[in-house]
Amino acid sequence: MSISKEITKLEPFIRILNDELNIGLPGFEAQKLMSPSSREQALLKSDPSKARDSSVLLLFYPKEGQLHLPFIKRTTGNTNHSGQMSFPGGKYEESDANRTITAIRETNEELGVECEKINILGFLTELYIPVSNFMVLPVLAYSDERPSFTLSEFEVEELIEMPLTELLQKDNISEFIINKNGHRIAAPFFHAKGHKIWGATAMILSELREILLRAALI
């Protein structure tokens, strides 16, 4: 896969991404390219109309001549997503003016990124997560420089910084099998420095990838 030089520099990347967002979003068809095989069955047993609002932040920033996205490995606990790879983000609180504020607040709490250094670009398509009953709004943003990260010991076990040129290449996508409650689940995933990015996070990334493919950036 050829890589456009515009995907490595912040200013042209932001300009092109803004243009693509104005054209419209690929939506569910792009998300489902990275959907686990169990999702359709899970949706049949769920009611998205009763979902809790939440959001995540896709924060682009330059590092070592490449644009990166930060991911967190969540600490192991009793939540549905403990130990998994995800974007920073979380549940909407009544004190939040909107879900954009939720994404910024959660990124500050989990990664210590200063709120005023987060510049909002736009949004991807909402995604319902049956296992946790969340309706997730992916918020796109950028920082002019690599943030100074301070990890929340309670919520974040590890920070993984991935260059876009590596993350979104076709040969960085694989599939693994999960056996859960006697069911065999096929789950596509993105490789991320020894970790697997799958599930809702991979579905969100899939829509971003389709937008960048449409723009001939990858």
Rank of each mutant, 00 (worst) to 15 (best):
M1A: 15
K5M: 01
T8G: 00
K9H: 10
I16D: 03
I16C: 00
I16Y: 05
E20T: 12
P26T: 08
E29I: 14
S35V: 06
D47T: 15
D47P: 05
D53Y: 11
L57A: 09
Y61N: 00
H68C: 14
H68L: 10
H68A: 01
I72R: 02
I72M: 14
T75Y: 00
T76D: 02
S82Q: 12
S82T: 07
Q84A: 11
M85G: 05
S86F: 14
G89S: 12
G89Y: 09
G89E: 04
K91L: 13
Y92Q: 13
E94M: 10
A97D: 06
I101F: 03
T102R: 02
R105C: 01
E106D: 06
T107C: 13
L111Y: 09
G112P: 03
V113N: 06
E114T: 14
I118M: 09
I118N: 13
I118S: 11
I118Q: 10
L124T: 11
Y128I: 10
I129G: 00
P130G: 05
V131F: 01
F134D: 14
L140Q: 12
Y142D: 10
Y142E: 07
D144P: 02
E145A: 15
E145D: 14
P147N: 01
P147E: 03
T150H: 13
T150E: 14
L151M: 10
V156G: 06
E158S: 08
L164T: 06
I173H: 08
I173W: 07
F176I: 08
I177M: 00
N181V: 00
R184H: 11
P188M: 09
F189R: 10
H191E: 15
A192W: 05
G199Y: 13
A200R: 12
A202W: 00
A202H: 05
E207M: 06
R209W: 01
E210Y: 08
E210R: 12
I211T: 07
I211F: 08
L213H: 04
R214P: 04
A216F: 07
